[in-house]
Design a binder for these strands. Structure first.
Length: 286
DNA sequence: AGTTCCCTGAGG
DNA sequence: CCTCAGGGAACT
């Protein structure tokens, strides 16, 4: 599932494939995935040059001058850059032409440069794309509501944000308004590393352990980015390559297997409808 | 704070 | 056939 490290990897692989290139015609094969995007907005994309590709939380922001594209991959979304002639499948929902700069005058009879396509692909159709004026990007509801970036926030701000809230630590780390970009896999990995039971009320976690949590959050996310994300079901980067962090997971998806630290069987519980794996010995409920 | 829903493919 | 996976919005 694309979380911060996967989205970061998509952004890093997508950027070089699209920045400086010009968008062509957009084709919507599944209108459901367009959020608050009038057909006119789509038509206006054609001819615009891609300026930048950035990430905010789990959102992908593509700046095309005065128009911006926002993608959220949710669980099974993919953004791919492929040759225009590559076959599509039934889960390809949005296609935007992509070509190199448009010369002022085309040489008669010259072949058009081989064109690529930027494609949004999503088996479950939970993901979406929004097109809006660049000036409205920051105020788009999905972005305005996000908490700070976990790799940019400092320890004191992290601690302050958590201390303002009540509730289970797992639910808070998953809450995008508290901190942006962490999902189910990395929450479990971070809590394991910090030795905190996922159901622990945040107000019961003492300062030294909050510090351990902060360090672990940074370490896990950075390691996962280094490994180019976790590919369990559908995740691939903009070139279609899988990540490698699934081989480095310490607790997620390891229910019943021995804890890598103490050998105790990893247990799984459901919190807020999400499965949570943890070691009952290394992550004692305090 | 917990439940339901969206959606589809995989696995039982 | 049934159940499960899951981000996040909407609802209870």
């Amino acid at each position: 599932m694309p979380e911060l490290p996967e989205v970061e990897t998509v952004v890093r692989t997508l950027g070089p494939l699209v920045i400086g290139r010009v968008l062509g015609r957009a084709e919507v094969l599944c209108p459901k995935i367009l959020r608050q995007t009038p057909a006119a907005g789509l038509a206006e994309l054609a001819g615009r040059r891609v300026r930048s590709v950035r990430r905010r939380g789990k959102m992908i922001l593509i700046d095309c001058g005065d128009l911006g594209l926002v993608f959220h991959l949710k669980m099974t979304g993919q953004i791919l850059v492929v040759p225009a002639e590559a076959p599509r499948d039934k889960h390809t929902h949005l296609v935007i032409g992509l070509h190199d700069g448009v010369p002022r005058r085309r040489v008669a009879g010259a072949d058009a440069a081989a064109a690529d396509e930027l494609r949004f692909h999503d088996v479950r159709k939970f993901g979406f794309c929004r097109i809006c004026p660049s000036g409205e990007l920051a105020s788009a509801p999905e972005i305005a509501a996000l908490g700070p970036e976990p790799l940019e926030i400092g320890l004191e701000e992290f601690r302050a944000r958590l201390s303002r809230r009540r509730g289970r630590i797992k639910s808070l780390l998953l809450d995008q308004a508290v901190i942006a970009g962490i999902g189910n896999i990395y929450t479990d990995e971070i809590l394991f590393g910090a030795g905190i039971h996922p159901l622990t009320p945040v107000e019961r976690i003492r300062r030294p352990r909050i510090e351990a949590l902060f360090m672990e959050m940074r370490a896990v996310l950075e390691r996962a980015i280094d490994a180019k994300g976790t590919s369990i079901s559908d995740y691939v980067d903009a070139q279609g390559s899988p990540g490698g962090f699934q081989n480095l997971l310490r607790v997620y998806g390891r229910e019943g297997e021995p804890c890598i630290r103490c050998g105790t069987a990893i247990r799984r519980i459901v919190i807020g409808g999400r499965s949570s794996s943890f070691c009952p010995k290394c992550q004692r409920q305090r």
